[in-house]
Write a protein that binds this DNA or RNA. Structure first.
Length: 652
DNA sequence: TATATCTGTCATGAG
DNA sequence: GTCTCATGACAGATA
């Protein structure tokens, strides 16, 4: 039996690890591939000043709490945070979706009660594996759980009381596998088992006097008895047995989002959190503190922010299933996460308090959801990303989304225009101009300019902006006074003199279509039209000149850096060359010394030593060394002398 | 006062 | 043909 115990203990550990791995493998990518297109940068030209930046990705802060749950850019952050929480909360109670593993019992041996040491080797360990779609069904609503619980209760009542329960099987480790529905152990059974375990842990007493728990214990005991009735030799086939059982699992087990469960934590925490429900539990002193099970229950919902913060229920995630926002068809969506937690809590309550507490708690769970988030989910237009974002005057959102001509500003202050953003308004997706005030809009456009823009581009204190759908209004007297308060450019002074009801900023920023419409609609005179065109041309050229100069400076800076880099590289190569030359000289000297030594030891045909200056050592390609006479320079011939003469003649 | 730098503007070419 | 953009050149302002 020791062998069997060791075998099952190891199997328990391995299976716990397996479940942990399964539990954390959540398909985040599928969730990410949802509503919003990937971020993109549109390079409109060679200048970085014309790069549209996805500023919306910077709207939301990343503290994980004040962002919209639909924001896809933060899913990675959420996933990372959630996975960390999963790691931290390993062992905390979680309700499974497809694959459940429950450490049902770690009960002290009734024959050898040891209240002070729950880890006594005589403790019996019960493992309950539940595989099936019950959990996923439970995610749909709470009715299934209730009906299932009632069935289980009835089933348990038919099993009869358990007088001995697990206590009759000391010194053994039991394994219980249930697949599908016939051998399935209901959550109520589990909860009752948990309560029993908790009692044992609390006072070391193994008395199973709870009538509700006895049928379950009897049923489980029957399974264990059947299982343990197998001969010892069958233990060798345990792997095949487990494999056979596991073959009944959902083939897409990797997609299961179920979590590993530590029943010790579940029972202890659950009993403390709902100690008022469990009469037996509240009658006994609590010996140690455990976190509340529900709020600390780990959820694989990608939208849930931080389970430990207790904000899980205040998210839109819990109802994503109900609102058909599930990304990959996984049953473990936001609603599933909430229901998982609620259902798990119900499991505890089934064996502890009853369904009244369950309903009330679930109702509280649902009521605690922020209605605002529900509205956002209901309006799944994909533009709800604006909710919870920074204010319109946020410095980070310097791009003018509402403007028909966007003004982009790169990190170095270069400026540029783009007429592409106007499509947003024209498509009716979002009319930011109706939300953002014009002053805010203009602030976001013209503030913090690297190239100081004096009077012409100073923020005009106007309340109108000649865009589509916005009626142009002449400048009022107050606005004229506002213009007087600052330095006006020549063009602005001219425009004011000609009673042109637009500022230079407006004239420059408006798209060409609107500009033409303005010219036609207002019935300007030829002089006014000419001035308007000049103002627009000069304004755009001014910005172009600024960008051009900035690019020139950047190019110069880049070239200077390149020069410095190349000079450093040249110096490095020169140093390496010198070192190589020295090395080569040293090696040549050594070779010469070695050759002299070798030649001095050799003798010619007459027995005399070879002269180093007349002979040399040659190393062949095959590594063979041979002695060869030194070739003296050839004596210049007459032809050579003639050639030299010709060269001299040519030089002359 | 001379000089360097910055900035606005014009002219021109390209897309 | 018009518009926009890029860029060289020029001139005025300024440090």
């Amino acid at each position: 039996m020791q062998i069997a115990k060791k075998y099952f203990t190891e199997g328990l550990i391995q299976f716990t690890i397996l479940l942990s791995l399964i539990g954390v493998r959540v398909d985040v990518d599928s969730y990410l591939n949802g509503y919003f297109p990937p971020l993109f940068d549109v390079n409109l030209g060679p200048s970085s000043a014309y790069t549209q930046t996805p500023f919306h990705s910077l709207r939301d802060n990343l503290d994980g709490y004040s962002v919209h749950p639909k924001c896809p850019e933060l899913e990675y952050f959420f996933a990372t945070r959630r996975l960390l929480d999963e790691v931290r909360t390993l062992g905390s109670p979680r309700f499974p979706t497809q694959l459940n593993a429950w450490l049902v019992h770690q009960v002290a041996d009734s024959d050898q009660p040891d209240p002070g040491d729950s880890s006594n080797s005589n403790n019996r360990i019960d493992i309950n594996l539940e595989v099936g779609s019950t959990a996923s069904n439970a995610n749909d609503d709470g009715k299934h759980l209730q009906s299932s619980s009632e069935e289980e209760r009835q089933h348990l009542s038919e099993q009869g009381p358990c007088t001995s329960g697990a206590c009759q099987l000391p010194e053994e480790v039991s394994l219980y596998l249930a697949s599908g529905g016939e051998e399935r152990v209901s959550p109520s059974q589990l909860a009752q088992s948990f309560s029993l375990e908790q009692e044992d842990l609390l006072d070391g007493n193994t008395v199973l006097s709870d009538p509700a728990a006895e049928p379950h214990a009897s049923a489980v005991n029957q399974h264990w008895s059947n299982f343990l009735s197998l001969p010892i030799t069958d233990l060798d086939d345990l792997d095949s047995l487990v494999t056979e059982r596991l073959s009944d699992l959902d083939p897409d087990i990797t997609g299961a989002i179920s979590q590993d469960v530590s029943l010790r934590d579940a029972v202890m925490a659950g009993t403390q959190a709902y100690g008022g429900v469990s009469q037996r539990a509240e009658a006994r002193p609590v010996t140690r503190q455990q976190p509340p099970p529900l709020l600390l229950m780990e959820s694989t919902n990608s939208s849930h922010l931080d389970s430990s913060s207790g904000m899980t229920l205040d998210l839109a995630g819990p109802f994503t299933s109900g609102y058909n926002v599930s990304r990959n068809g996984s049953s473990h969506d936001g609603m599933g996460g909430c229901l998982d937690e609620a259902v798990f809590d119900q499991i505890n309550l089934l064996g502890l308090g009853g369904m009244d507490a369950i309903d009330s708690h679930l109702l509280n769970c649902l009521e605690s959801i922020n209605p605002r988030l529900l509205e956002d989910l209901d309006s799944d237009s994909g533009l709800s990303l604006e909710s919870g974002s920074q204010g319109p005057a946020s410095p980070g959102t310097s791009v003018v989304s509402s403007s028909s001509s966007s003004y982009c500003e790169d990190d170095r202050g270069a400026t540029g225009y783009s007429s592409e953003v106007d499509s947003i308004n024209s498509k009716g997706i979002a009319d930011y101009s109706a939300v953002w005030s014009l002053e805010d809009l203009s602030d976001s456009v013209w503030h913090d300019h690297s190239y100081s823009s004096p009077a012409l581009f100073h923020q005009p204190s106007v309340t109108s902006f000649p865009h589509k759908g916005i009626k142009e209004e002449p400048l009022s007297d107050d606005e004229d006074q506002g213009l007087d308060s600052r330095e006006m450019s020549r063009d602005e002074m001219r425009a004011r003199a000609l009673r042109i009801p637009f500022t230079a900023l407006q004239i420059v920023n408006m798209p060409v279509d609107e500009f033409l419409e303005v010219l036609e609609a207002h019935g300007f005179s030829g002089e006014q039209v000419s001035l308007l065109r000049d103002i627009r041309r000069r304004g755009k050229n001014k910005l172009a000149a600024q960008n051009c100069r900035k690019r020139k400076l950047d190019a110069i800076t880049g070239l200077q850096e390149e020069v410095a880099r190349l000079q450093a590289q040249r110096n490095r190569l020169l140093r390496e060359k010198q070192i190589t030359a020295k090395t080569m000289g040293a090696v040549g000297h050594q070779i010469k010394q070695l050759s002299r030594d070798v030649l001095s030891r050799l003798r010619d045909d007459s027995g005399r030593p070879l002269h180093p200056e007349r002979y040399t050592l040659q190393c062949g390609a095959n590594g063979r060394v041979s002695v060869q006479p030194v070739r003296r320079p050839a004596v210049s011939t007459t032809a050579g002398s003639k050639t030299d003469k010709r060269k001299k003649d040519k030089k002359q």
